[in-house]
Amino acid sequence: MRLRAKHLGLRLSTWAVLLFLHFPIFIVALYAFTTESSAFTFPPPGLTLEWFEVAWNNGDVRDALSLSLRVAATATVIALILGTMAAAAVWRRKFFGREAVSLFIVLPIALPGIVTGIALRSAISIGGIPFSFWTIVIGHATFAVAIAYNNVAARMRRTSPSLLEASADLGANGWQTFRHVLLPQIRPALVAGGMLAFALSFDEIIVTTFTAGNQQTLPIWMFTSLVRPRQRPMTNVVALFVVALTFIPIVLATRLTRNTEGTTG
């Protein structure tokens, strides 16, 4: 009996937390349909589909969305490559400075984004580098590496080194071992790390403000539009659109990581 009751408490609090996490998203969805153009009030005075049309026809939104997607994709690829290399280097080996290396890799996410942002900004201004697509990518990849590294390193820690020895014994070279033995092992971590890195980059504004110049990523577009009448309801439409767009990849990725987890665990 007592166990049941406790169970119930746990279940209730779980659903309460999920409600807490999703209620604001529900509000975002609701106000995508409001008839108000600037100051929102509750309950909304009326509902309309107008903003979907306005958003659809807005070139700025499309440009910003496309820039954000390209930045996030590029930063994620760079991060996965660098993060995997670093994780492989640190794995199974003790070398001088190993601790320092792992600390340094984590530093960009451990230090607040504003520090990263303003540091990159100083480097950009001292070096006289013009703002471009790549200045944004560099900013994002810097913290995304840490995410990729963490995921891959955690996975590698749980991978038995004997697998690699077996592969070598069977005559596989380093590349073949990586391709056929290690890669399948770390694939879930790459998917999870890549997803998280992509999501962080896609929604990043703190660092981007300092490295974008007057380019508009989606969050920067949102930031200026949220305080502009007629554009404010549009931001809700766009946010909703992004959630809908990402829902399927999230579900698929969860499937993928779960399944492999199941077979190896």
Partner: peptide, 23 residues
């Protein structure tokens, strides 16, 4: 659960903060 926890990460941080302002 996993999907439900991940979704907020994907819906714009700024828009959610502004929706809190209204809440």
């Amino acid at each position: 659960f996993f999907v439900l926890i991940l979704i907020p990460l994907w819906s714009s941080y700024l828009v959610r903060v502004y929706s809190w302002k209204l809440i």
